[in-house]
Amino acid sequence: MNIPNQITISRIFLIPVFMIFLLVPFGWGEMALLGTEIPVSHLIAAIIFIVAAATDWLDGYYARKHNLVTNMGKFLDPLADKLLITAAFVSLTGLDMFPAWAAVLILSREFAVTGLRLVASGEGEVIAASNWGKWKTVSQIVAASAIMLHNIIFEMLAIPFAEIMVYAAVILTLISGIDYFIKNKHVIKNTK
């Protein structure tokens, strides 16, 4: 297994770690950070989540720079993204920090595109991430991070940044899902 794929796998292993800090009430209290009270465990969870999300850029950069792009990487990378995002949004919804309607829309698109990829894989095709898909991922990561960080900085400015990013993530998620299905409709038409 090459280094980019190992980096991708590390993203998957960081998922339960960030979830533990987000979901387990350690009783460490809160800290004031840039004018916002934030539970210490949520701050740690957000840092781990952001590090895990950053590995998405790192593995892709390394793979392209060293010509190590593989079909396994094309499959694992979006899967790791989906697992990370699913874990974040389901956890945040369970904590009443993320709207359930947004989680349902986002996760429905994620599962639909994963299904499309599986069908394509059965036909011997690999569907790589599109630019819309990459922007969608960035918006989802920013939305989840802003929520975990309790809208730090923006809270002082009375700007509902986290809420704005939720809407942006939903819109980009739906656009990218439609884009995947339009560009790959041949995959569905060719199935028997």
Rank of each mutant, 00 (worst) to 15 (best):
D59M: 10
F111L: 14
I50N: 07
V170S: 00
N5L: 11
V113G: 01
F13C: 03
L68R: 12
T191E: 13
P39A: 12
S176K: 03
A169T: 11
S108W: 06
A103Q: 07
T8M: 04
I38G: 03
V119L: 14
R109A: 04
V126H: 09
L76E: 00
A129G: 15
L22W: 00
I20L: 12
I3P: 11
F161S: 08
I44A: 04
T8P: 07
A87E: 00
A120E: 07
S139H: 03
G124L: 06
V90C: 07
M165T: 05
E123G: 11
S121N: 14
E30F: 07
I9L: 14
A46P: 08
V170H: 00
F98G: 01
K65I: 05
A169C: 11
K136N: 13
I9A: 13
I50P: 06
I164M: 14
F49R: 01
I175R: 05
K136I: 02
T86N: 12
I153C: 12
G94K: 09
V17K: 02
I171Y: 06
W132I: 06
L83R: 00
F89T: 06
I171E: 03
K74R: 15
G122K: 09
Y61C: 07
P16W: 02
Y180G: 02
A143W: 03
D96C: 10
A32E: 12
K82R: 13
T70F: 08
H150G: 05
T191P: 04
V166I: 13
L79N: 01
S139E: 03
G73S: 13
N2W: 03
S130Q: 10
M19A: 12
S10D: 08
V17S: 02
I127A: 05
I127P: 00
I20S: 02
G73D: 07
L58G: 04
A63V: 07
E37G: 09
K134S: 07
N190D: 15
A100F: 14
L33S: 06
G73F: 02
S121R: 12
P39S: 05
A169E: 03
P25L: 07
F13D: 00
I50V: 15
G115N: 10
A87T: 03
L105A: 14
D59V: 05
V69W: 01
F111A: 13
I85Y: 00
P4T: 07
P99N: 05
D96P: 11
D59Y: 06
D179N: 15
W28G: 09
A80P: 06
V166K: 01
L172R: 00
T137F: 10
L22C: 02
M72Q: 09
T8S: 12
V104E: 08
I164R: 06
A80R: 01
M31V: 15
N184M: 09
P99G: 03
L105P: 03
L76W: 01
G60P: 11
A54N: 14
A120S: 11
D59H: 09
A52Y: 01
K192N: 12
V24K: 10
G124H: 11
I44F: 08
F21S: 00
M148D: 04
G73W: 01
V187H: 01
T137A: 14
W135I: 14
N131C: 08
A162L: 09
